[in-house]
């Protein structure tokens, strides 16, 4: 297939189907994330960069023999590996008997949050999540450094930025009604992650999606009046610092890094407070990084138009 637009859309569809399969496999949080990230943000970014590169792939000769050989070897290794696996869906596999039971049986008493995924994510393996937030931050830094636009271009081209879809009245009106709801939903997901699927990451992505939708319809300069690029840059860092700061406070209060038990007199309350704060940190970083990445891609488009 040489039309990259179709390729990108199909990969978005693949992600969406994956998300529904994850749902079927009881992984509600994962499904939620895959839908918002794989089908949402990732597709959006791919489309944004397609705008900057040519949409059609050139016809090229492949070098399929070596690739085929590598892939077949990998496949053989994988299939070989599957032969001794515990069967799908069995309850007595080692995965279900060794570490996981404690999460399912004790987490209500130790952390007091019904969504076990949230308690593992933010507390038992909270450090992984800090790392994950840092990964997002790292990507943000990378994109900012690579797609930097000089101040001069920004100012000179300011008047030239038309919103992509300014003429679409229906879209604009519908979006005006939708965007507040999207942002509200993001906040709901942010603070309801303890009880249902959701949490900082999903909320951040949804929040960013709302702002991105606004930017697409009303133009970059309009949205940048509210969300200044420099401010968002600070927010990307602030989220990580909030997360890490909670950990350091735990240390100062006598516990280990990220041991929320020490945040309040009652360990369970401490855990609640800790999870709330770190999820907020994740949400802030994710939302601002997603926004800044999108803005950078859009600026690049503007720059190209301006140069022409």
């Amino acid at each position: 297939m040489s039309d990259l637009f179709a390729v990108v859309m199909l990969s978005g569809i693949y992600s969406l189907i994956s998300a529904s399969l994850f749902l079927d496999l009881d992984a509600v949080d994962v499904a939620f994330t895959e839908a918002s990230v794989g089908a949402g943000i990732s597709t959006l970014l791919m489309l944004a960069s397609l705008k900057l590169v040519s949409r059609y792939q050139k016809k090229t000769r492949y070098k399929p023999i070596l690739a085929f050989f590598v892939v077949v070897t990998t496949g053989a290794m994988l299939i070989y590996g599957t032969l001794d696996m515990p069967h799908f869906g069995t309850a007595d596999a080692p995965v279900h008997t060794h570490v996981a039971p404690r999460y399912l049986n004790e987490s209500m008493g130790e952390i007091g949050v019904p969504n076990v995924v949230t308690s593992v994510l933010a507390s038992y393996r909270g450090y992984d999540t800090l790392g994950e937030t840092l990964v997002i931050f790292t990507a943000g830094i990378g994109v900012m450094a690579l797609l930097m636009v000089s101040k001069q271009t920004k100012q000179e081209s300011k008047k030239l930025i038309p919103a992509d879809m300014q003429q679409q009245i229906i879209l604009r009106i519908v979006a005006k009604m939708m965007i507040p709801l999207i942002l509200m939903f993001a906040l709901y997901v942010q603070f309801h992650g303890d009880y249902g699927p959701g949490g900082g990451f999903q909320a951040g992505v949804i929040f960013a999606a709302g702002i991105i939708l606004y930017t697409m319809l009303f133009g970059l300069s309009t949205s940048q009046e509210v969300f200044k690029a420099t401010t968002i840059e600070l927010f990307t860092a602030a989220g990580v610092l909030l997360y890490g700061g909670v950990g350091v406070v735990c240390m100062l209060l006598g516990g280990n890094f990220l041991d929320y038990d020490f945040l309040k007199h009652d360990p369970v309350h401490g855990q609640h407070l800790g999870i709330l704060l770190v999820e907020l940190g994740v949400g802030i970083t994710v939302a601002s990084v997603m926004m800044i990445i999108f803005f950078k891609f859009t600026w690049r488009t503007v720059k190209h138009k301006y140069k022409k």
């Binding site: 800090l130 840092l134 931050f137 840059e233 600070l234 990307t236 860092a237 602030a238 990580v240 610092l241 890490g244 700061g245 950990g247 350091v248 240390m251 280990n256 890094f257």
Partner: peptide
Amino acid sequence: HLPILQVIIPLLAAPFCI
């Protein structure tokens, strides 16, 4: 706390640079 300080000092310093 030295083991964790080893990693979180640069970890927190990085966003602070911004």
